[in-house]
Design a protein around this nucleic acid. Structure first.
Lengths: 251, 251
DNA sequence: CCCAGAACGCGCACGCCGTACGCACGTTCC
DNA sequence: GGAACGTGCGTACGGCGTGCGCGTTCTGGG
């Protein structure tokens, strides 16, 4: 027989029974203590510090001093909670509040960099994008789309093409940032820093690239570079090309 | 009494000696029956038909006529299994086997379309990219990278820039396809087709876009279009812009 | 001021999950 | 003949999301 506390109710709840009314720590409910905003905020803290796999309703409940199922009074289910968290994150993305036709390129670039930076600050969203998509219809997503659309339309893109241009930039940035975020996640799990990891894996990579001359050359060319700035330069290069391509349609 | 074939071998019990080899119910161990390739293949079938959430070691074991834990003889853990499945999928991506400088744009475009088509055929990889990244080092991934690098270097990009150009195209395609795949996944779960879903959500979207003129216009402009071809045109537009932007560096 | 009903927190239970461990068995090599 | 090995599987552990029903607290209308 396993030494477990008896699962049969034992009617007058066992250990949390205070010996007397007089020592009971304050009658009544402490606080409301649970609200949707508070839940989302704590979920964000958990996600940012431990990643998406660490987010469970039980753990989140504990952190809030509540049981897991209490959360369901304020949130329909875990997916909805994550969707709320994602839109909350979108709130950090900076977009221009007025569109200047002469500055469309800088404005778009600024949006792109802000989007990337936000994703890298919260790498767990990369895992979410592939499951829920971009969570359209969230208030912050709509705010951002409107601003970016406005940048492209005032730049001279006809409405339908402005849509496509925005989608192009967003796809490039999310694609790049997703791969960076996944990399950072793997890294964080391993407890090593970027340089250590690369150095450790270099022999394996070199061997795997044996038969592929271009890969070998690329590998050798990156050796010893600061990986962080290399990532930033790579992002900037692609962004410049995307904007170059868009510029041909409007200049 | 459930009519199941006896799962317990009971090999040497005396009276059940079968008279002939041909009628004997396959005494002892059936076959090797389990190999890494077979496991990966069945995992792919499961993933393609029911999505990433439906992949569990137990279910996969059942499908192979084996217990869940038997799989661990051939695969270190679930993540490794998925990584193998991903690289298997990469095998479907078509890349040119010889690079012709005059045709670099068409070659790159063909790779891009093939990558997108592959991701849309197996939408579950979108969920995986954000967690593992692109599964570098897998044999098929290396084959593809080599081919694409070769396209860009023979087109005239210096080695380091060819790397960045390839990363740009891949980021754009995966970004676009991830969002499409997520959309298709949500759709599949709902059991509706694209048009139905859009029509059903239209009022909500219209209301949410109330305060945003550009969003409203975009919404109205897309109404009634065939969503599938609209997605394809959007992808082609962005791809053209990306390649335009790259072309400025080499022509 | 009271009380009915709504809102809320929570314990419990169910049916899943990934996987560590050790046993039983067929095969193969000495 | 028997030891060593590869393989499948039963069992078990700790965790998960969440439906349900209970008791408590809060609120607003009479």
């Amino acid at each position: 027989m396993p030494s477990r506390t008896p699962s049969t109710p034992t009617p007058s709840s066992p250990e949390q029974m205070n010996p007397s009314v007089w020592t009971r720590p304050r009658g009544g409910r402490e606080q409301p203590a649970l609200s949707r905003d508070q839940i989302v905020a704590e979920a964000l803290r958990l996600l940012d510090s431990e990643g998406i796999d660490a987010l469970s309703m039980r753990k989140l409940g504990n952190r809030l001093g509540a049981g897991a199922t209490s959360l369901y009074r304020h949130v329909a289910n875990k997916d909805e909670l994550i969707e709320l968290a994602v839109d909350e994150i979108y709130g950090e993305i900076e977009v221009p509040d007025t569109a200047d036709p002469a500055r469309w390129r800088e404005d778009a670039a600024r949006c792109a960099h802000s989007l990337r930076a936000t994703m890298l600050r919260h790498p767990w969203i990369a895992s979410v994008l592939g499951q829920m998509g971009l969570s359209y219809l969230g208030p912050n997503y709509m705010r951002i789309s409107e601003a970016m659309l406005s940048v492209f339309t005032t730049a001279g893109f006809p409405p339908e093409e402005a849509d496509q241009a925005m989608a192009t930039v967003i796809a490039y940035v999310t694609g790049m940032a997703t791969s960076e975020a996944a990399w950072l996640t793997v890294l964080a799990r391993s407890g090593q820093n970027e340089e250590e990891w690369i150095e450790r894996l270099y022999p394996a990579a070199e061997q795997a690239a044996q038969a592929y001359p271009h890969l070998r050359e690329g590998l050798a060319g990156q050796r010893g570079k600061n990986p962080r700035t290399a990532r930033e330069e790579g992002f900037q290069y692609g962004l410049d090309r995307v904007l170059d391509g868009l510029a041909t349609r409007v200049n």
